[in-house]
């Protein structure tokens, strides 16, 4: 069976799963929006004086998008463990489909969900009064970046799921990686960070993804920022995809 068609069929299956149990997706939408509104409400009015950010709603928008994408992208790993435990993973592995398609189908579904959520967050943020400097084309770029980030990020949970088959481990893995989202200029510009945090943030690829996305919202087209963000997405993706492939190998060749 052709790998692309198979991946797509399995993406559709994963997607249908979400439609069948929409309640599972609600927290993924609620949590980033909640933090967005609360953070803007708490810090928005002093951001200008405290660290020179005029449009804090725009400043926080990509944070909400990344947080949402990370939450959504956690789903693939968990769902994969359920497939492994139910034996359905092996049923799929017994078809003539390339086994990578079984994994990519899940990850792709999450990436698409993350893009949909990003769209919803942008619309709500605009209604809330945020600006978006690069307009519709910039929004498209932001959504594309979200797609890449979610795809790459979901690889963490999927790799752990394939390696361990345990939902707890997949969940724990997520918790270990979640801080990456906050060891970045999430609440304030990197320039105001304590020296140690700035050093950590500069090593964190999420920082560059966030800055690239933020430039689209609050500054306008900034090729350098976008390029760095793109490289960061590819770097995370390269690592997680490698881990996923290794974990897949160890699972299907035991």
């Amino acid at each position: 069976m052709n790998g692309i068609t198979a991946t797509w069929l399995l993406t559709v299956r994963a997607f249908r799963e979400s439609l069948k149990q929409p309640a599972n997706e609600l927290p993924n939408a609620f949590i980033p929006l909640f933090f967005y509104v609360v953070t803007v409400g708490a810090i928005g009015s002093v951001a200008q004086n405290a660290f020179g950010v005029a449009d804090y709603k725009g400043f926080q928008l990509p944070v909400a998008v990344l947080q949402g994408a990370a939450g959504v992208a956690n789903g693939a790993g968990l769902a994969m463990t359920l497939d492994i435990q139910s034996g359905y993973f092996e049923k799929l592995a017994l078809t003539s489909t390339p086994r990578l398609a079984i994994v990519l189908g899940r990850m792709l579904a999450d990436a698409i969900k993350a893009v949909i959520l990003a769209g919803a967050i942008i619309v709500l943020a605009l209604l809330y009064g945020s600006e978006f400097k690069t307009g519709i084309p910039g929004m498209a770029v932001l959504m594309a970046a979200t797609f890449g980030f979610a795809l790459a990020y979901s690889g963490i949970g999927v790799a752990i799921a394939l390696k361990t088959g345990s939902p707890q481990a997949a969940q724990a893995g997520f918790i270990v990686f979640f801080p990456l989202l906050f060891l970045a200029p999430t609440f304030a510009p990197i320039e105001v960070f304590a020296a140690w945090l700035e050093a950590v943030a500069r090593l964190n690829p999420v920082t560059y993804i966030l800055l690239g996305m933020r430039s689209l919202v609050t500054e306008g087209w900034d090729a350098a920022a976008l390029a760095k963000g793109g490289v960061a997405v590819l770097a995370i993706g390269a690592v997680t995809l490698t881990l996923t492939l290794l974990a897949l190998r160890s699972r299907v060749r035991q």
Binding site: L9, R13, S86, S96, T97
Partner: peptide, 23 residues
Amino acid sequence: QEVGLDELQTGRELLELQGRLFG
């Protein structure tokens, strides 16, 4: 020995997907 089914799909969906994955 142990059935391996995805409980969220219907029987028909599962069989059709299985067939498609066989090309």
